[in-house]
């Protein structure tokens, strides 16, 4: 699995050649391939092609309007690796991704367990918890930006009217508080999706395991630690992987709230990339950063694939119909 994941990088030309080959032997084209083909073509065209384009661009000197002006090899990458702002953004991306994903899981797990249990108003509670999902990230960020306004913001209004603070707090004035607030908003918007996945897992869990545990006199914590958690592992895994990918790539929250400021103190890789590409017109360098980000995620995904295949090896073999092509 891991090997095929690596070779997926060179899939595009292979896939095209392979497609053509099968087309040539069109009498033999198999039903499953025919079914996969349209989606493959779309994904290859819309996502694969720009990746290749990006790889090519990152080795070029590029004018600010995207005109390629000659091959420069690794120069763009060298420039990225010589830039202190890149390292700062990379480091902050790690904190951002780690904190948001960890925070989301820590909150979503108990919330999902509550929502899975039977209690009065569960339907309402589920709707409420899912609610942030229905607003776009951009709009959420716009609303929070307004709510966090120092002197007129309604967050300060609430805290002042409750007597928690006397003076308004300027939430976004310093990088440390601004970044913390952004992480909290990031967690808030990630909870619904994560809770949904976990809730799906919990509700599909066999009840007999619990009943046996109760008979054995297992306490709540032991039940959770030795039954719930192991059974939930695949769901937690997928929640982690998808969240890492989304959060790592997420622009709107930070962009709308602080644009990476003050003093680049909340810049993560995507905001830095956006500025480089569209404000400063350094498209070569920006492409290089895109590829580096792609590399980071690739490594992460491969790790996940390895983990997954190890799990699958333990599970029962897949139940499949034999295809006609064999």
């Amino acid at each position: 699995m891991a090997q095929s994941g690596l070779s997926a990088l060179c899939l595009l030309p292979v896939a095209t050649a392979w497609t053509l080959e099968t087309m040539a032997k069109k009498a033999h084209i198999s039903i499953p391939m025919l079914m996969v083909l349209p989606s493959l073509l779309l994904a290859t065209g819309i996502i694969g092609y720009p990746i290749l384009d990006l790889a090519w661009t990152s080795m070029q000197e590029v004018s600010r309007f995207g005109k390629l002006q000659g091959f420069v090899g690794w120069e763009n990458f060298a420039e990225v690796f010589g830039d202190p702002l890149f390292y700062a953004s990379l480091w902050r991306t790690g904190i951002w991704t780690g904190a948001v994903v960890a925070g989301t899981l820590l909150i979503s797990m108990p919330v999902a367990m509550i929502l899975n249990d039977d209690f009065y108003g569960r339907g309402l509670a589920r709707v409420l918890v899912m609610l942030p999902w229905s607003i776009s990230l951009t709009m959420t960020a716009v609303v929070w930006r307004w709510a966090l306004n120092g002197r007129s913001g309604l967050l300060n209004a609430t805290l002042m009217q409750m007597g928690v603070i006397n003076e308004p707090i300027e939430w976004l004035a310093e990088a440390s508080t601004a970044f913390t607030v952004e992480i909290l908003v990031g967690i808030l918007v990630s909870i619904p999706f994560t809770t949904t996945i976990l809730l799906g897992g919990l509700s599909s869990m066999p009840q007999d395991a619990y009943e046996a545990a109760v008979v054995d006199g297992a306490t709540g914590w032991h039940q959770f630690r030795y039954i719930t958690l192991p059974l939930m592992k695949p769901f937690i895994n997928i929640a982690i992987v998808l969240n890492v990918i989304y959060v790592f790539n997420s622009l709107p929250i930070i962009w709308v709230m602080t644009e990476g400021g003050p003093a680049n103190g909340t810049d993560i890789l995507v905001t830095y990339l956006y500025k480089l590409a569209f404000r400063f017109g350094q498209l070569g360098k920006a492409s290089a950063i895109s590829l580096i980000m792609f590399g980071v995620l690739l490594v992460f995904t491969l790790l996940y694939v390895v983990l997954l295949s190890r799990n699958e090896a333990d599970a029962a073999p897949e139940d499949e119909v034999k295809g006609h092509d064999e």
């Binding site: 997926a8 720009p50 990006l54 790539n249 990339l273 980000m293 690739l298 995904t301």
Partner: peptide, 20 residues
């Protein structure tokens, strides 16, 4: 291979690809 290819497409953020 196709499964992994799909996983990879999932990894790409539109912002990274926007110019292409």
């Amino acid at each position: 291979l196709y499964k992994n290819f799909l996983l990879m497409t999932q990894m790409m953020s539109p912002i990274v690809l926007v110019l292409g």
